[in-house]
């Protein structure tokens, strides 16, 4: 759906490129995670993709046509949810949404959306009186109100309580099942792991790694089995190569010992993030 080839960008007053030769593809109907530490070029890439930044080098095509050739009609197709709360504080949530709704040709019924994210009862409350979590949910509804084909979500569940984050993640997955495509950035690796079909890691303006979370976990993980068992009231740990899983000694260990935990050596996306970008995740 979006193909980015050798994207390079530098801000007018800077000498160095903040994006330096990045190429990737976002396929129709997938959730694509774009991950990286602050200042890595993630936000700049997203600004370019949503046509807020022009003057880039390289090639970007959206549905087979150069992104630059699209007029503002492009925005009829997409929904953008920003990380920071965005709303006219003195207008009610409903007034905010209705204002934006009038700018689109195609829109959805707001009631089911607001009910789903738990804001219907507070629809007539001024947005400025909302908590941070409520404002983020309002952002999310705003991104969906034009029934987009493509969603750009920046830290969509950051600052949202776990119950509502669950609802939002379910809505993102439902959007995908209906054929929608998502470009997602998040520092919550659990969400990325759960939602994304493929992820790309960017650091220092360059793409460091790309693949499905599963493939990356296999690539960066250790092909080992770690077994913790108790013997004579003492905890023992045994790490075996994956190849030895069919070895009779391994079965004997499982049968004879009091097994407490059993883990494969696959790694987590958080560990891959640190390894690939060289930067620790913020809390």
């Amino acid at each position: 759906m979006i193909i980015v080839k050798n994207l390079r960008y530098k801000y007018p007053k800077n000498k160095d490129y903040v994006i330096d030769g990045v190429s990737f593809e976002i396929r129709e109907g997938e959730i694509f995670g774009f991950l990286g530490p602050s200042g890595a070029g993630k936000s700049t890439t997203q600004k370019i993709l949503i046509k807020l930044l022009t003057g880039f080098e390289g090639e970007i095509t959206y549905q087979g046509r150069s992104l630059s050739s699209y007029t503002n009609e492009f925005y009829q197709d997409i929904g953008v949810s920003f990380e920071m709360p965005i709303s006219f504080s003195k207008l009610t949530a409903l007034e905010n949404l209705r204002f934006f709704q009038r700018l689109y040709r195609k829109t959805v019924d707001l009631e089911p959306l607001l009910r789903r994210v738990g804001l219907w009862e507070d629809r007539n409350k001024k947005a400025g009186e909302y908590s941070k979590g409520m404002k983020i949910r309002l952002n999310f509804v705003r991104a969906l109100l034009n029934d987009p084909k493509f969603l750009f979500l920046d830290e969509p569940t950051n600052g949202v309580d776990p119950a509502n984050a669950r609802i939002m993640k379910d809505m993102i997955l439902e959007f995908k099942r209906r054929g929608g495509t998502v470009f997602l950035t998040s520092h919550i690796m659990g969400d990325v792991d759960e939602l994304c079909d493929r992820v790309a890691f960017i650091a220092g303006g360059k793409l460091r790694e790309e693949g499905s979370p599963r493939d990356l976990k296999l690539k960066y993980g250790k092909r080992t089995i770690r077994v913790e068992y108790r013997e004579n009231d003492e905890l023992h740990t045994k790490i075996l190569p994956m190849e030895e899983i069919k070895n009779p000694d391994f079965f004997k260990l499982l049968q004879e010992k009091e097994i407490e935990t059993l883990h494969s050596g696959e790694t987590t996306l958080a560990e891959i993030f640190i390894k690939v970008t060289g930067v620790r995740l913020r809390d």
Binding site: L52, T71, Y75, I78, V80, I86, F100, L103
Partner: peptide
Amino acid sequence: FYEKKEHTINSLMVTPVT
């Protein structure tokens, strides 16, 4: 000033508004 403070200009610029 209010649009800057409330970042609503960001939202407007990703709508079909020119």
